[in-house]
C-alpha cells in the first residue's frame, strides 16, 4: 500500500506535485494517468525515496521509505528505461542489487526468466533495445519479490508482445494481492489494464476513482459507424442524449449510445453497416473535459494539451 499525504514537490520555482493526497491500495492495478509533465514520475520518485518531498509525506507498506529494513523486498520500481550501466551484463546488473539487498542468487535467475531475458542475460546492456531495457527494468523491479510494484511508463518502447506481457503481468501481480501502480500518458493503455485510476493534471489530483466510472464521467467516447445508408441511420439513432456528427459522407460518429445498441437498431431496421467501432476517449480529451470546470486550468486548450 502507498499512502501519499499532502505531497508537494517543487523544483525551484516549478511546482511538480501540488498537495497530492491519495492512497494506492493492494490487490488491484492502479493506473496513474496524466499528460507528460503532470507530476507522475516525480510522485513515483518521491515514493521510492529518490527525491525529497518539499512538504507532505509518503508511506509505503505502512512505513517511511527510509525506514524500510530491506527496501528491495518491499518496493520494486521501474522508473526509467534502461536504468543499468551499458557496460554491464543484465545478470551482473541484477547480481549487484541482489548482493546489496541480501537476496539469494536464484532470485537473479528467476527475475531474468520472468522478464524473458534469460537468453540475453550475459549480454551487455549497452546493446539492448529499448524494449529489452524495459524488460530489464521490470526484472529489477521484481527482483526482491516486493509487495508493492511501481512502474513508470512500462510499455514505452515495447513491441505488441511486450505490451501484452506487461498488461498480463500487472494484473497477475495485483491478483497475488500486491499493490501495483502503473503510470502512462496513454489512456487507452491504462484503461484496459487498470481497475482504478489516479489522474494528475499539473501536479494536482484530478480524479481518484474506478476506471469505469472515470471513463463514463470523461464522456465515454463515441462510436464510428460507416454505412451506405448513413442518413437513414442518423435519423433512426437521433434522440435524447445522443449526439451525431458526420465528418464525411457515409460516416456517422455517435456519442451517447454504445456499439451494441447501434448495431441492434440498425439490424432491426435492415440497415447495412460497413464499420462499427467504439472510439475510446483519448486522455487529452478526457483530461480536458474533466478539468474544464476547474478554474485553475482555464488557461487555454493549447497549454492544457501540452
Amino acid at each position: 500500500m502507498i499512502e501519499i499525504r499532502s505531497l508537494t514537490k517543487r523544483y525551484g520555482e516549478r511546482t511538480a506535485v501540488d498537495d497530492l493526497t491519495v492512497t494506492v491500495l493492494p490487490g488491484r492495478v492502479t493506473g496513474f494517468l496524466g499528460p507528460n509533465g503532470a507530476g507522475k514520475s516525480t510522485t513515483m520518485r518521491v515514493v521510492v525515496g529518490l527525491d525529497r518531498p518539499t512538504s507532505g509525506s509518503v508511506r509505503v507498506n505502512g512505513r517511511r521509505y527510509a525506514d524500510l529494513p530491506v527496501p528491495l523486498r518491499e518496493v520494486g520500481a521501474l522508473l526509467e528505461a534502461r536504468a543499468a550501466h551499458p557496460g554491464r551484463t543484465a545478470r551482473d546488473h541484477l547480481r549487484v542489487l541482489a548482493a546489496t539487498a541480501g537476496l539469494p542468487r536464484r532470485r537473479v535467475d528467476e527475475a531474468l526468466d520472468l522478464a524473458g531475458l534469460s537468453s540475453v542475460a550475459d549480454r551487455r546492456v549497452g546493446g539492448f533495445s529499448l524494449g529489452m531495457g524495459q524488460r530489464l527494468g521490470v526484472a529489477t523491479a521484481l527482483l526482491g519479490d516486493p509487495a508493492t510494484v511501481v512502474l513508470d511508463e512500462p510499455v514505452n518502447g515495447l513491441d505488441p508482445d511486450g505490451v501484452l506481457w506487461i498488461r498480463t503481468l500487472a494484473r497477475a501481480l495485483a491478483a497475488e494481492g500486491r499493490t501495483v501502480l502503473v503510470s502512462s500518458h496513454l489512456m487507452s493503455e491504462v484503461a484496459v489494464t487498470a481497475d482504478h485510476l489516479v489522474v494528475l493534471g499539473r501536479g494536482r489530483l484530478v480524479a481518484d476513482e474506478p476506471t469505469g466510472s472515470f471513463l463514463r464521467r470523461a464522456g465515454g467516447g463515441s462510436v464510428r459507424v460507416r454505412s451506405p445508408q448513413a442518413d437513414r441511420l442518423a435519423s433512426l439513432l437521433a434522440g435524447n442524449g445522443v449526439t451525431l456528427t458526420s465528418p464525411e459522407r457515409g460516416l456517422v460518429e455517435v456519442a451517447g449510445l454504445d456499439a451494441a445498441a447501434i448495431g441492434d437498431r440498425a439490424a432491426r431496421a435492415g440497415i447495412t453497416l460497413h464499420e462499427l467501432s467504439p472510439v475510446a476517449p483519448t486522455l487529452e480529451t478526457a483530461f480536458m473535459d474533466l478539468t474544464r470546470e476547474d478554474r485553475e486550468y482555464r488557461t487555454g486548450p493549447a497549454e492544457v494539451a501540452a
Binding site: P69, P71, G87, R88, V96, L97, A98, A99, A101, G102
Partner: peptide, 28 residues
C-alpha cells in the same frame, strides 16, 4: 520488524560484494 546491522538487507558484506561485482563487471 527492524533488523539492526543488516543495512539494506545484505549488510556490509552484501554492499561490498555488490560493489565488487559492480566494479569487476565493467571492462573499463
Amino acid at each position: 520488524t527492524r533488523t539492526p546491522g543488516r543495512l539494506a538487507g545484505g549488510g556490509a558484506t552484501g554492499l561490498l560484494t555488490g560493489q565488487w561485482l559492480a566494479v569487476r563487471s565493467l571492462r573499463t
